[in-house]
Design a protein around this nucleic acid. Sequence first.
RNA 1: UGCCCUAUGGUGUAAUGGUAGCACAUCUGAUUCUGGAUCAGCCAGUCUAUGUUCGAAUCAUAGUAGGGCAACCA
Length: 566
Amino acid sequence: MVELENSGELNKKSLNFIENFIENDLSEGKNDGRIQTRFPPEPNGYLHIGHAKAICLDFGVAQNYKGICNLRFDDTNPTKEDVEYVDSIQEDIQWLGFQWENIYYASDYFQQLWDFAIRLIQEGKAYIDEQSAEEIAKQKGTPTQPGAESPFRNRPIEESLELFRKMNEGVIAESAMVLRAKIDMASSNMHFRDPIMYRVITQHPHHRTGNTWKAYPMYDFAHGQSDFFEGVTHSLCTLEFEVHRPLYDYYIDLLQTSNYRPRQIEFNRLNLTYTVMSKRKMLQLVQEGEVTGWDDPRMPTLCGLRRRGYTPASIKDFINRIGYTKYDGLIDVALLENSIREELNKSAIRVSAVLHPVKLIITNYPEGEVEWLETVNNPEDESMGSRNVPFSRELFIERDDFMEEPMKKFFRLSPDKEVRLKSAYIIKCTGFKKNEKTGEIEEIYCQYDPETKSGMPQSDRKVKGTLHWVSVKHSIPAEVRLYDRLFKVEDPASEKDTDFRDLLNPNSLEVLTDCRIEPCLADVKPLDHFQFQRTGYFNVDSDSTPKHLVFNCTVKLKDSWAKNTK
RNA sequence: UGCCCUAUGGUGUAAUGGUAGCACAUCUGAUUCUGGAUCAGCCAGUCUAUGUUCGAAUCAUAGUAGGGCAACCA
């Protein structure tokens, strides 16, 4: 923890470009020195690691400058939104360790937005367009060609007012008409070509306002104004909204009555290698059963990462490391994995689990005898204490830890060779039993040296290898799930023309059914963190019987095994 | 062939006109009560050109490359 705090302070020294803007605004005395941000998710999916980046910024800025950060649900499109998402979003923000000052909904401002829209119609700055979506799109022109004006553009104000009211009465069919701002159909910024302000939605009741409203504001007509109504000073969002900013400012100009003015600043979205962050695609994975749910440990959602064993601190550490810029890059997922490995390496209790067991019999150890041997919980942190593990004549060791004919640099067990059993004795292999048909090793025999018990005066004899083990009689059978990357290509997001399911990694989940774990794991609590000897990190998923160990291994797990056995 | 944004080692990010630094990854060595840890080390960078300046990653101009913008999504 000390080191984490230090690194936080070190990072504080260099401000990101957003904090520079903020300090400038403060030094110029803008907004009476007040700092207010907001985290504005649309409740149409679960939060993912990319949202964590925005959350850390929105809440972090508020903390650093003694301001406030509100949670605002951008719920202006009832066709896509649901209370399920509203709930999960709150849960995940709090899990990350942030607390909003207030919780707001864009739908709280529907009346104010409506009144503002009426005002714009009255001022001749907005009109009702009765063309179809296709016609409007056609008239919009292209980025290189100016658009054409709608035939309804100059209709009488009273007519627009009348129709706008009807839009909200349920007597207008969806997509029959829209309210558009009258700006400039020839603007080089597409968003100024008479952007749509309101559309009619009658088929989906809103998850909060029910059937009260039939006319719903578009993002551009809701977001900036919501910021303004709430008193947001810095509206931080991702780069794709950069071209929206002039429109944001346009509406704010019309709304502004004092010196107060919210300011939109954009930063780069998080892109991770081997990771799909699109909500649409994640929803598809869930709906089509490619994963077990939004919280599947292979998903980049916060709840998925949580089940995989990520801690809030590790995610925040990762976000802290990648920073905020305007460069649209692709971050190596190894950076994220390093953050959790570093934390768990310091904080997790190390325990033993044998994933591919083979029986090891110590022929000179008395039958029926059991010794409870002390083993430290974390060699890097003595304050985490120790526990006792049972040792007996028959043990399980990792199949990979024995080689009949050892290769170069293989320092684990092979005939006539010695290794140390972690926290126990040095043993020497005296033989093995092999299934003649399959060639599989069935049992390994060895003798132990009683003088070499851990902690004893004679025990410091050097041997080249150390093995983890569990006692056959005392160990608990377990099913271990190894989760790898869900996608097998480095940048699945860029494979736009491919069905992304073709990019799925068929080995993203491996279930090992005959694993053996230490008895101390019999009643661990869900999400307790442990580190397996040698093999990685895991947390425990209590929802399943038999006990499932959700392995939070690094994705190179299998490669490394292959490498180690070469 | 419009408008907006961006460009620093393999990846990400600092340096705000004055020594190009840090992290991750890779590789090498050490180490052996697991070690995928730890320690040490190597490799590797300012997109190009011109200009301004005593001095440019930083400022200017022009190129080049990448991203965004043409939803009744956010």
